[in-house]
Nucleic acid binder design. Structure first.
Lengths: 342, 342
DNA sequence: CTGAAAGCGCTTACAG
DNA sequence: CTGAAAGCGCTTACAG
C-alpha cells in the first residue's frame, strides 16, 4: 500500500518551523508536561501551528521512543457469540476513554491462538486481555516471559491469580429465586461444560440456592451440555425422558436455552405451562425466541470495561482477583410462569 | 503499564553479537532479501542465533523505518450484528494470510466515528475498510487527504468508486425463485431502509424477478422497515392488515424476519401454512427460530476476505468496484412450504 | 523560559 | 560476501 495522494505527512519539524520554536517544545506542550515553563504567547503560537497544519504525532515514532503502544489486545474465541460482542463494546469504550485502541482477535483453535500471539509479536500491544477457554498455562507463561502483562476475562485458572469475572453464583441464585417466587419447587439445571468455570460457578450457585430454599436436586436433574444449542437440545431431551419431570429448568447459557426450547417443542411440552425456562445472559435475541425467554442480565459491558481498567492500572506482577459488581437482574418474559396445578 | 518481569527485549544488536555479523545482515536474512549474497554457513549462524534468542523484530521500529504498519483497520457499526461477525472473520483470516493484523473498531454514532478515526490517527493502519451506513463523503475525503487508502465494504456511495459488495439482486432473485418453485404467486417484500443500499439492491432484485416470472407486485405488498426486529414486526403487521394477503414474503434481512415471524404469531397466521417466509443471511440463529427460517446464504466471509485483499492490492487512486462471487444459495427450512389450496 | 542532542530499533542504499 | 552509516519521528534528560 503506497502513501496515496496525501503527500508527506506533517511532522514535529514542520510545526516547529512554523511556530519558530524547537521540536521539543511542541512535544512538551502537547503532552502537557508539568515541568514546562512557557510564555503564554509562545504556547499560543505552538497550538496555532499544530491546528493549522493538522499535526498528529506519529504513533510508531512515539511507541519506539516511549515503549508504550497505546494499544490493548483482546483475545476472544468467536465474534459470532453475542456475549463477546458485549464484552468488546465495554472494552472498546474503556480503551477510548484512556486514548487507547483495542486490538481484538479471535482464535477458535490452539493453532490460531499461536499465530495470533505471534502476530502481536514484539510490541504491538501494551497488554492482553484473554477471554474464553482456550488459553493454557503455557501460553500465559510465555506472555509473562515476554514481559507482556495479561489478564483473564470471564474465567479463572488454577494457580493463576490475575482475572476479572462476573458473579455467576449470584446469577444462578437470582434465577432459582425467580422460579421459587413463582411457586416452583421442582427445578432442574441444564449446566454448561465442566471445563468452563463460568459453568462450574453457575452450577455451584444453583446447588447452593436450592439448599437455601430447602429444595431437593433429584438425580438426573442436572445435565451438562456444551453451551451450544445442539447440546442444550440433547440435554433437555434427557431431562424430559428421565423419570420425574421438573416444572422448571435453569439453563446455564442462552445458546443451550435455545436448544432446550426446541426440545420442549419437539416433545410437545408447552412452555411455560408445563416447563418454565430461565437462562443466563440477556441478549437482544432472547425476546424474539418463542416463547420469549426469561433471562438473567449480566453486566457484560462492565466486565470488558473493567478488564481494560485493571490491565492498565495493576502492575504486571501484582495479583488481581476481581468480581465485577455491575447491575444484575432477572428479566422476566414469557418462558417463566407459575407451575400448573397437577 | 510497565515492562514486567520479562527484562529487556531481544534486539537486532543482540542477535548480531551472537552470530558475529552486522545487524544489517540479520535483517536481510530475515526479510529474504533476494540481492543478499551470503555463505550458507553464515546464514545458518544467523538463523540459529535468531532462534536461540527468540528474536522478533520490533514492530514500532520497523514501521517507523518502512512507513508500513502491517495493520489494516476495519470499521463496523456494531459487534452484536452477526453479519459483521462473519465479515470480520473473513477479513481477519485474509489479514493473517498476509502477516497483517486486523484492527476492528465499532462506531454506532457519528461522534464515535470521529473519535475512532482520530485514534487511528497518524500511522496506526495502512488502510481502512469501511462497512455499514455511517461513513459520509466528508469522512472519505478526509481519509484521502490524510493519504490513507480506504475501501467501502458491503455498500456503495454515489460519486465514489471504491467498494466491494455482494450480489444482492441475485440473492433476492434466488429467494423469489424458491417461492415460485413452491407454487407461490402472491409474494410480498419486506424491504430494508432506503438509506441502505443493500436494501435498495434487494428490492430491485425482487421487482426484477417478479417481472421475470410474470408476477404482480400488488400495492401495499412492499413495505419498508429499518432492518430491526421491531421494524420488521410493524411492517409485517401492516402487510397482514392491508387488503389482499400474500401467501409468501421475502424479507430483506434476518432481524426483520425475526420480527415478521413474531407478527405472524401474534395475528394467528400460521407459518408456513398461511405465510411462507424467506430472508437474506443464513446465520446460526436462523435454524433455532420457530419456525426454523428459510434463508439465502450470502458469502459474508468471502466479502471480508476480498476487502482485505483489494485494499492491499489496488493502488489508493485506482477505481475498485467488485461484486464478490462466492457461494450463494437458498437454505430451505420450515418457514417455507407450498401455499395451502384456498 | 527555550534549544541541542541522544537514542528508541529497525531497513536499505552504499561502500568496500 | 559483509559492514558502516544514515535516518524514520518522536521524547526527555540535560544544558544554558
Amino acid at each position: 500500500m503506497s502513501t496515496g495522494t496525501g503527500g508527506r505527512r506533517v511532522t514535529l519539524a514542520d510545526v516547529a518551523a512554523r511556530a519558530r520554536v524547537d521540536r521539543s517544545v511542541i512535544s512538551r506542550v502537547l503532552s502537557g508536561d508539568p515541568r514546562l515553563l512557557i510564555r503564554e504567547e509562545t504556547r499560543r503560537r505552538v497550538l496555532d501551528a499544530v491546528r493549522e497544519l493538522g499535526y498528529r504525532p506519529n504513533v510508531a515514532a512515539r511507541t519506539l521512543r516511549t515503549q508504550r503502544t497505546g494499544t490493548i489486545g483482546l483475545l476472544i474465541p468467536d465474534y459470532a457469540n453475542p456475549v463477546y460482542a458485549e464484552i468488546i463494546k465495554g472494552a472498546e469504550a474503556a480503551a477510548a476513554e484512556r486514548d487507547c485502541v483495542l486490538l481484538t482477535g479471535s482464535a477458535g483453535a490452539a493453532s490460531e491462538l499461536d499465530s495470533y500471539l505471534d502476530l502481536l509479536g514484539q510490541g504491538r500491544v501494551d497488554g492482553l486481555l484473554l477471554a474464553g477457554e482456550l488459553t493454557s498455562k503455557a501460553t500465559l507463561d510465555g506472555l509473562t516471559a515476554d514481559g507482556l502483562p495479561w489478564l483473564l476475562v470471564n474465567r479463572t485458572m488454577r494457580g493463576e491469580a490475575r482475572h476479572v469475572v462476573l458473579d455467576d453464583e449470584r446469577a444462578a441464585a437470582l434465577a432459582v429465586e425467580h422460579l421459587v417466587s413463582l411457586g416452583h419447587t421442582e427445578i432442574a439445571h441444564l449446566a454448561g461444560p465442566s471445563r468452563a468455570d463460568t459453568a462450574q460457578r453457575r452450577e455451584r450457585g444453583y446447588r447452593a440456592s436450592m439448599r437455601t430454599h430447602g429444595l431437593v436436586v433429584r438425580p438426573g436433574w442436572t445435565n451438562r451440555s456444551d453451551y451450544t444449542a445442539h447440546g442444550g437440545y440433547r440435554a433437555m431431551i434427557q431431562i424430559l425422558d428421565a423419570g420425574e419431570r421438573p416444572t422448571a429448568v435453569f439453563v446455564a447459557n442462552l445458546a443451550s436455552a435455545i436448544g432446550a426450547l426446541h426440545a420442549l417443542r419437539s416433545r410437545g411440552v408447552a412452555a411455560p405451562d408445563l416447563m418454565s425456562v430461565v437462562a443466563v445472559h440477556d441478549l437482544p435475541l432472547a425476546e424474539h425466541l418463542w416463547p420469549a425467554l426469561t433471562t438473567v442480565r449480566m453486566p457484560l459491558r462492565e466486565l470488558g470495561q473493567r478488564g481494560v481498567e485493571l490491565l492498565a492500572q495493576v502492575g504486571p506482577d501484582e495479583t488481581v482477583r476481581e468480581v465485577v459488581t455491575g447491575p444484575m437482574e432477572v428479566v422476566p418474559r414469557e418462558s417463566t410462569a407459575p407451575p400448573l396445578a397437577r
